[in-house]
């Protein structure tokens, strides 16, 4: 464990807590893409298949349970909670996220470190996570301005993978033979997708005005 990875995990944890807090306290999911939340639930379900077979550490197992629990409960809130579901804008959240799942699955069948069930699904989860934010960013552009909590959620979600990139650089230089191109490239692409959001988020914060992405 290194400071970059710990910072990344804490930032990731903060992002899901901000979203859960928003949905649970104000009972609203306005501006939040259910498609992105469903993709993240799939990401965690396919990445943590080893949660009961490979014990790494209490921290690792605890965090996996938190991410699995939070992502599935957010999906449940947005789909089934009688009050929250009313604030879900399904007419705007129209990104065909199944067009993301199939290509990621096919790509994972081709590009992976070992062609086994678990390894292919693990690789699939990395590719899917890289693009999972797209429905949310599209929804953001459609609904124009967004509330602060949703903006903070997206910012933290993007920042966590940026911390992971520093973690991979650190591990590359400190651990011999630590080379994993697949998460590195997927993680870099994921962080780049947040590029313009970070740009507008920073400027709205600097000029202290409402966050608005260009149409």
């Amino acid at each position: 464990m290194n400071i970059f990875r710990f910072a990344g995990d804490m930032t990731h944890l903060a992002s899901v807590l901000v979203l859960l807090l928003k949905i649970h306290t104000i009972k609203s999911c306005a501006g939040v893409s259910l498609k992105t939340q469903e993709l993240y639930a799939i990401v965690f379900a396919t990445r943590y298949l080893d949660i009961f077979t490979d014990f790494i550490s209490l921290y690792n197992t605890f965090m996996k349970l938190v991410f699995l629990g939070s992502s599935f409960s957010i999906v449940w809130y947005m789909r089934s909670h009688k009050i929250v579901r009313r604030s879900y804008d399904k007419d705007q959240d129209t990104f065909r996220h199944y067009f993301l799942i199939v290509p990621c699955l096919l790509l994972a069948m081709i590009i992976n470190e070992k062609f086994t069930f678990r390894e292919v699904l693990w690789t699939f989860s990395l590719f899917l996570e890289a693009v999972a934010i797209l429905p949310q960013l599209v929804l953001l552009q459609r609904t124009r301005n967004i509330d602060n909590l949703t903006g903070q959620y997206i910012f933290l979600l993007g920042a966590y993978r940026a911390f992971y990139i520093f973690n991979w650089i650190y591990r590359y230089f400190t651990e011999p033979h630590y080379v994993h191109w697949i998460p590195w490239i997927a993680g870099l692409l994921q962080t780049l997708l947040y590029g313009d959001f970070f740009y507008y988020y920073f400027h709205s914060w600097k000029n202290n005005k409402k966050l608005q992405l260009p149409a």
Partner: peptide
Amino acid sequence: AAAGELKDEL
């Protein structure tokens, strides 16, 4: 890299 190595990252 040892492909079978444990996935210690989240």
